[in-house]
Amino acid sequence: MYVELVGLTKCFGSVVAVDDVTARVVPGQVTAFLGPNGAGKTTTLRMLLGLVRPTAGQALLDGRRYDQLESPRRSVGALLGPDGFHRGRTGRDHLRVVALAAGIGTARVDEVLELVELTSAADRRVGEYSLGMRQRLGLACALLGEPEVLIADEPANGLDPEGIAWVREFFRRSAAEGRTVLVSSHFLAEVTRTADRVLVIDRGRLRFDGSLAALAATADAAAGPDDAAAIETAFLQLTAEVAA
Rank of each mutant, 00 (worst) to 15 (best):
A59R: 01
R65Y: 04
D83T: 13
W166Q: 05
G35L: 04
V112C: 06
R134C: 06
R136N: 06
L118K: 03
Q58I: 00
D93Y: 10
A102G: 10
A121D: 13
A165R: 15
A102Q: 12
E70S: 14
D153L: 04
L113I: 09
F171C: 03
Y66G: 02
G158C: 09
E70G: 12
A59C: 09
L137K: 02
C141E: 14
A59S: 08
V109K: 01
L137H: 01
G158L: 06
H94Q: 11
G158D: 00
T106Y: 09
P54Q: 06
A152N: 05
T106D: 13
E162W: 07
E146C: 03
G63C: 09
R124T: 00
L139F: 12
L95Y: 11
E70F: 07
A56G: 11
E128S: 13
D153P: 05
E114D: 15
G35K: 01
K41S: 02
G84R: 11
R46W: 06
S130N: 07
L159K: 06
A78P: 01
F170N: 07
E146D: 15
F85I: 11
R136T: 01
L45Q: 03
E128C: 08
G50K: 08
F170W: 12
G138V: 04
S120K: 13
V109W: 02
G50A: 11
T42F: 01
V98M: 12
G127L: 12
L34K: 01
V97G: 04
T44L: 09
G57T: 06
L60G: 03
R172F: 08
A165K: 13
L80W: 06
S71F: 11
T44V: 01
G91Q: 08
G77H: 05
G105C: 07
V97I: 15
P72S: 11
M47Y: 08
L159H: 09
L115Y: 09
A156G: 02
K41Y: 02
G50E: 12
L131A: 05
N37P: 02
A56M: 05
P82K: 00
D110K: 09
V116I: 12
I164L: 02
V109E: 04
L51R: 12
H86N: 15
P36C: 01
G158F: 03
I104M: 04
G57P: 01
R136W: 01
R87D: 15
R89D: 14
L45I: 15
A59H: 07
V149Q: 09
D62W: 05
T55M: 09
V112M: 04
A142Y: 03
E114V: 12
Y66W: 14
L61S: 06
A122D: 07
S120R: 14
A39M: 08
E148D: 14
L49I: 03
G132L: 08
A101G: 10
R136L: 03
D160N: 08
R53M: 10
V149I: 15
A156W: 00
V30W: 06
E128L: 13
R73Q: 13
V76K: 00
I151Y: 00
Q68E: 15
R74K: 15
Q29S: 13
T44C: 03
C141F: 08
R87T: 12
E128F: 07
V126K: 11
A156V: 14
S75L: 10
L143H: 05
R108E: 13
H86Q: 09
L69Q: 02
G103V: 11
P72F: 12
